[in-house]
Design a protein around this nucleic acid. Structure first.
Length: 229
DNA sequence: ACATTATCCTGCACGC
DNA sequence: TGCGTGCAGGATAATG
């Protein structure tokens, strides 16, 4: 598959949700999803490529692009841009930090969804790019129970949910930038302080009630049973 | 039509 | 100490 990218020019690099798109000439796109443990970065000298690299893309100067993925859940594939864009266009919701993600659009989508709030937020067709951690944090901030059926949430709460999503993502982006320590390297304390995620049994920062962990859609959800209704 | 579960894969936290 | 077991995660396929 990577044979198809040899000799191509990278025209530009884009991102849609959690998808990284390297646009190549000839209508091809090198499509990468990092999943949990993937890492993608450029190094100034291809001879410095780490031994555990899954993919090494040698550029025409000395540099190289490295794709690492310790748990191997990530994907990198070369596909026709046209079919990829059609796929992502249909499967991905609005970019949460763009103008198309508004209180109104979230409100409208919420009206026709019976999904529990947590699963709604994790559903990439609803909002692009929200994962387990930030979905839980956004729900905590807007005081919505992760189990709450989406269509049953008030207009006012949807407003604060929208605000919470944007706020959480902006803070996450900020801390990621702060933690950036060179190509492929991030310092400790990568995340901003998390209020609920990973804090099962610890006291809620707002009310001291113990944070609870439940399973939704096969994944852990953390929330405060007192603050979130 | 919907919801739950298995699958991919490996590092890590456990328990004995 | 060292081994084995099981779980975690995002997305999708398969099953109920």
């Amino acid at each position: 598959m990577l044979r198809r990218v040899t000799g191509r020019t990278v025209e530009r690099i884009e991102r849609r949700g959690k998808h990284i798109l390297m646009r190549l000439d000839g209508g091809l796109t090198l499509h990468t999803h990092l999943k949990m443990t993937g890492n993608l970065y450029a190094i100034p000298d291809r001879r410095l490529a780490p031994a555990n690299a899954r993919v090494i893309l040698e550029l025409d100067d000395d540099r190289a692009v490295i794709f690492e993925d310790s748990r191997a859940l990530g994907r990198m594939e070369a596909v026709r841009s046209q079919s990829l864009d059609r796929l992502l266009g249909g499967e991905l919701g609005p970019e949460p930090l763009s103008g198309e993600f508004t209180v109104e659009s979230l409100w409208l989508a919420s009206r026709r969804s019976k999904q529990p709030a947590k699963l709604f937020l994790m559903d990439q067709r609803r909002v692009a790019g929200l994962g387990n951690i930030y979905a839980a944090e956004a729900l905590f901030r807007s005081r919505i129970s992760p189990r709450k059926r989406m269509s049953g949430i008030s207009r006012e709460r949807i407003g604060s949910l929208h605000e919470a999503i944007v706020g959480v993502l902006n803070e996450a982006l900020e801390s990621a930038c702060r933690a950036y320590a060179g190509p492929g390297e991030f310092s400790e304390a990568e995340d901003f302080p998390l209020a609920v995620y990973g804090r099962e049994g610890e006291p809620c920062l707002e009310c001291s009630q113990f944070i609870r962990r439940i399973t939704q859609g096969g994944r852990s959800t953390y929330y405060c049973p007192a603050c979130q209704r």
